[in-house]
Design a binder for these strands. Structure first.
Lengths: 350, 350
DNA sequence: TTGTACGCGTTATCAG
DNA sequence: CTGATAACGCGTACAA
C-alpha cells in the first residue's frame, strides 16, 4: 500500500505533499520548494509540480506549515468596547473599520481572527496571545484598557492599537488627531457665531477625552468660558445619546450649538431637538465626529470631522506587518478634516 | 543541554509540554492528559500538573494540537455582500449579527475567522475550505451566491447559511420566515386601511424576494391589485435607498404606505418623505424589517418586523457544531414578529 | 495510573 | 538543482 495511493490519502481526507511528490515523481522537498516558488528549483520542475498540485486540488496544509515554519499569517483583531453597557457593536464606525480590516488583511495575505471583548477580564490579552496562533494583534479602541495594553506591550506583545495617542505609552497607535479634530469642530462653531456650545460624549474615554481637550482649547482661544453644565456625558448608542440630549435640553442652561463626540450621538441629538420643536441648524447647530456613511444621508446632512477609515486600516495592516517583522514603529496621527454640510450654518442674529 | 532547560525553551520562545513534564517530573503524555483533564490521570497528579502549567504561564500550542488531533476549534465566518456596490458592511443588521456570532462562538470555545467577500470569485468557497483550517463555515447572507453554495454543499463542505430557505437547496439555512414576515408587515398596513402600498427593496436577492412574496400574498388576500409601479428596487445603503425613495416620490403613482425591505431603507425613505414635506405616519405609513437598534430611536420610532439576531446567532453556532460532528441538520425558520411603533397608524379618513 | 514511541504534514538542514 | 532526514509540539495506541 505504499505506491499508488488513492487521490485522497491524507488523514484529513485530502492530498498531502507526499501524494503530490509521488504523482510528480520527485521528493517531498522538491514539492515543498516548488509550491513556495523557491528559485532553487528549476523553472521547469516548479511549473510542473505546481500544475499537478492545481489539477489535483491540492493546497498546503497551513497548520502543518505553521507548526514547522512558525508563521501563521494570522492577525488577531480585537474589538474592545467593554465600556458599552449593552455590549453590542452597533456603531457604524467600528463596523466599517472591521470591514476595511478584513479586506486589507486578506489582500495582504493574512487571515483575520476576530475577538470581541464584552467584559473586562484581567487576562484577556494574555489569553489571546497564549493561543500562540496569531503573529500579531490589532486592537480597535482602547476603551478603558490602556493599563492592560500597556502591560502587554511591555511584555513584548506584538500589537498595534487604533485609538488615542497617550502620553508615555509604550505601544504604538494609529488614529486621528483627536485634539486637533475636536478643536477644528469647536472652532467651526465659534466662527459661525455660536458661543453656548454643548459637548456630548464620555470624555473619560481616551479618544473622546482628547476631542474634549480640543473643544476646551478652542473655547479658550476665543475667550469663551467653559460652562460645565454644557458638558454632558453620553455613551455611543442611540439610547444613551437620546437620554443625554434630553437631559441637556431639559435641565441644562441655554445653548445654541452641540459638538457631539460621534456622528451617532449627533444624529440622536438632532432627533431629540426635533422632538421638542427645535430645528437644526436654524435653532441649534450640530457637528459630529467620524463621518460615517449615514452622516451624509441624515436630515439634515451632518457637518462632521472625517476620520479616514480606509487609510487607517491600511496603516494598521502595514504597520502590524512591520511590528511582526521586528521593526519599531512610531505612532501615527491622521488629520481630522472638517466636512461642512447642513447641520451647521452661521448663527442667526438676535 | 538536555536537562534543566531554561524556562523559555520552546522554539516559539515559550514553554512546551516537555518543559512542563520536566518541571513536574512526569512524562509528556501525563502532562498532555492532565491538561486535558483526562480522568485517567489521578486527580492529585492532574491538579499538580495544571498548577505548574498555570504558574509558568503555559498553554497548549493549538497549532501542534490541531495538527495531531485534527481539530482546530475554528469556524470561518464569511460575509458575502457581493451584491453591494460600495462593498462595505454598513448595515447595522450584519454588524449586530457579527457581534453576536463573535460572542457566541467564543463562548462555545471556537475561534472565529472572518472573511469578507467583496467581489464574486468563482473559487471563493474552495479557497476557504482548502485552507483546511476551519472545521466549518458560517455564511452570512446568501447574496447571489446560491449556486456556488449549492455546489459546495454537494461537495461535502461543512457549512451553514444565514438567509432564505430556498426550494430544493442541499444546504441548511437558519433565518427568519421572510415570506411570513413580509406578509405580516403588509397585512398590518392593509388592516390600518392602506391600499396603495409601495415596496422598496431588491427582490432579486433571496431574502428580499421572499419578503416581497409575502407582500404579494397579503395584497392578494385583500384583493388589492399589485401595481408594479409601486415596486421600486433599492440597495441596502442609505444612498441607494434615498434614490429609490425619491424615484418613487417623484415618478411613481400615488401611494399612502411603504413597506421597506430593511430598516435602513425604511429610515432613508422617511427622510426622503420628510424632505418633500410629507410626514410619517400622518401622510404615509412606513414599516421596516429587521428591528435594528436604531429603529426604536428613529423619529418617528419605526414599526418593523423583528428578526431575532441573538437567537439566530445561537442557532447558527449550535447547528454548525452539529454539522461538524457529522449530524444532518434541518433548516430553521424563525418567526418574524411585528413590532408596532409610531411610523404606522390607522389611515386618516378622506 | 503512568510511560514509551510514533505520526500528524510540513519545512529546514545538510549532503550529494 | 534535488533528495534524505530530522525536527516542529502534541495526542494517543500500546506497553508496563
Amino acid at each position: 500500500m505504499t505506491a499508488n495511493k488513492p487521490p485522497q490519502s491524507g488523514a484529513f481526507g485530502w492530498l498531502t505533499i507526499t501524494d503530490i511528490a509521488k504523482l510528480a515523481d520527485v521528493s517531498v522537498s522538491t514539492v515543498s520548494r516548488a509550491l513556495a516558488d523557491n528559485p532553487l528549483i528549476s523553472e521547469k520542475t516548479r511549473k510542473r509540480v505546481q500544475e499537478i498540485a492545481r489539477d489535483n486540488g491540492f493546497s498546503i496544509n497551513p497548520i502543518a506549515s505553521s507548526l514547522r515554519s512558525r508563521q501563521s499569517r494570522t492577525i488577531s483583531v480585537v474589538i474592545s468596547l467593554v465600556h458599552e453597557k449593552d455590549q453590542h457593536l452597533y456603531d457604524p464606525f467600528w463596523m466599517t473599520m472591521l470591514a476595511h480590516l478584513a479586506e486589507t488583511l486578506t489582500d495582504a495575505g493574512y487571515e483575520m481572527l476576530l475577538s470581541k471583548l464584552s467584559v473586562h477580564q484581567d487576562d484577556w490579552l494574555d489569553r489571546i496571545r497564549r493561543s500562540q496562533r496569531p503573529e500579531g494583534m490589532i486592537l480597535i479602541g482602547q476603551s478603558r484598557e490602556h493599563p492592560a495594553i500597556e502591560q502587554a506591550a511591555r511584555a513584548g506583545y506584538k500589537l498595534l492599537v487604533w485609538g488615542a495617542k497617550l502620553d508615555s505609552q509604550s505601544y504604538p497607535t494609529i488614529g486621528t488627531d483627536n485634539v486637533g479634530g475636536g478643536a477644528v469642530a469647536a472652532r467651526h462653531l465659534i466662527e459661525l457665531g455660536y458661543r453656548r456650545i454643548a459637548f456630548l460624549g464620555d470624555h473619560t474615554l481616551p479618544e473622546i477625552g482628547q476631542r474634549y481637550d480640543g473643544y476646551r482649547r478652542a473655547l479658550a482661544e476665543a475667550d469663551i468660558p467653559l460652562d460645565p453644565a454644557l458638558v454632558v456625558p453620553s455613551g455611543f448608542d442611540p439610547g444613551h445619546a437620546l437620554e443625554a440630549a434630553n437631559a441637556l435640553i431639559a435641565g441644562g442652561p441655554p445653548f445654541d450649538a452641540i459638538m457631539a463626540a460621534s456622528d451617532m450621538i449627533a444624529i440622536s441629538a438632532i432627533r431629540a431637538l426635533n422632538s421638542v420643536g427645535r430645528s437644526v441648524p436654524d435653532d441649534v447647530a450640530v457637528v459630529g465626529f467620524d463621518d460615517i456613511q449615514l452622516a451624509a444621508f441624515n436630515n439634515p446632512p451632518l457637518t462632521t470631522i472625517r476620520q479616514d477609515i480606509a487609510e487607517g486600516a491600511r496603516l494598521l495592516v502595514e504597520n502590524i506587518a512591520r511590528i511582526i517583522a521586528g521593526e519599531k514603529v512610531a505612532s501615527i496621527e491622521m488629520p481630522g478634516v472638517l466636512i461642512e454640510r447642513q447641520s451647521t450654518r452661521p448663527k442667526r442674529q438676535g
